[in-house]
Design a protein around this nucleic acid. Structure first.
Lengths: 162, 162
DNA sequence: GAATGGGTACTCGGATATAACTTGTCCGAGTCTCTTAGG
DNA sequence: CCTAAGAGACTCGGACAAGTTATATCCGAGTACCCATTC
């Protein structure tokens, strides 16, 4: 069970977008250059973010991606689910109904106890992810990014908007 | 992100084993027959359970798998980690260090904030799984299994130990 | 009748193919901008 | 000098391969049991 690395990429991208002026947009190509990842593959993931309503897109020159909502209203869970989906990590195939001792499906009044426990754990995982917003990640980034990197990043960004 | 179906199989198998007399063992073949799953593939997963110290194995006729510890001392997390591994679902590739604004690794005093949030969520997920023991699952099974299935299962099991 | 040796059937364990999914790449549709020609 | 039309370049979006992991299968090593033979 491993999350797609697309999650890491897009969350970093959104954190970067959160630091831009409200009307600015960054293309997939530029984002990929900033993080040194495959441009086309990143674009594919950003499309999923667009479908999920997390980012807006703008075509043409000076177009690209920008946040669709305030950073405070975007949770880490929103971004994870945009890439990874909303289904529970545990899939119950009801093997209790199979085999020589299985009986008709309507005999089972409650969901499988194992599945219930797994779903509960999945729920607390999602609840925990919901607690962190993009604004939180942005603040952490501003506070903990090495000053040298901050300067390089600002210089790099300014070079795009001239 | 989806858990291997081997998790479902092995947890069900352990729950069944928990209901057997202490000295009894059930072979992978019989377990697979009980749940109607591929015997060889189930055996592969049960080997992982053996490596993790959850079940004991006994070769030869009337051999098979049996619990290595009391059901109360086996958590759902133990079984999940035996199959799925102990590594965090989120893999941080430190993309913050890459690209044109990256600086030397020693400049980063703290782990990436995104990775911290993801690891925290992974931790609460594992903590939740730790709360459920095999004994709990066994009790739930005894309470919620349809009586008709319970009878068929007992009959089936008795047929093996005659 | 009891003990012992060998054969047989059954078990786990690891090595080996196949299938599904994640990862990575490519090309087309749409849109803004810049240039250039005309009024 | 101002306006407007057109070409060009840049963007996203979905369709198309390659690599990796999960799934499924097979065969060999080891062990307990059963039976026949012998004392």
């Amino acid at each position: 069970m491993r999350l797609s690395e697309g999650v890491e990429w897009t969350v970093h991208c959104c954190t970067l977008l959160a630091g831009l002026p409200p009307d600015a947009a960054l293309s997939a190509k530029k984002l990929a250059e900033f993080f040194d990842v495959p441009p086309d593959y990143l674009a594919k993931h950003m499309q999923q973010m667009s479908k999920a309503g997390i980012v807006n897109t703008k075509k043409g020159p000076n177009g690209g991606y920008s946040l669709a909502k305030p950073a405070r209203d975007i949770t880490l869970l929103d971004m994870v689910e945009a890439i990874d989906g909303r289904v529970c990590s545990f899939k119950c195939t009801e093997i209790r109904q199979r085999g020589p001792s299985g009986v008709s499906p309507c005999s089972y009044k409650t969901p499988c106890g194992i599945a219930r426990a797994m779903r509960k754990a999945d729920q607390v995982w999602r609840d925990e992810l919901r607690k962190t917003t993009l604004a939180d990640l942005q603040i952490i980034g501003l506070r903990e990014t090495p000053p040298e990197q901050m300067n390089k990043a600002i210089t790099w960004l300014k070079g795009l908007f001239t």
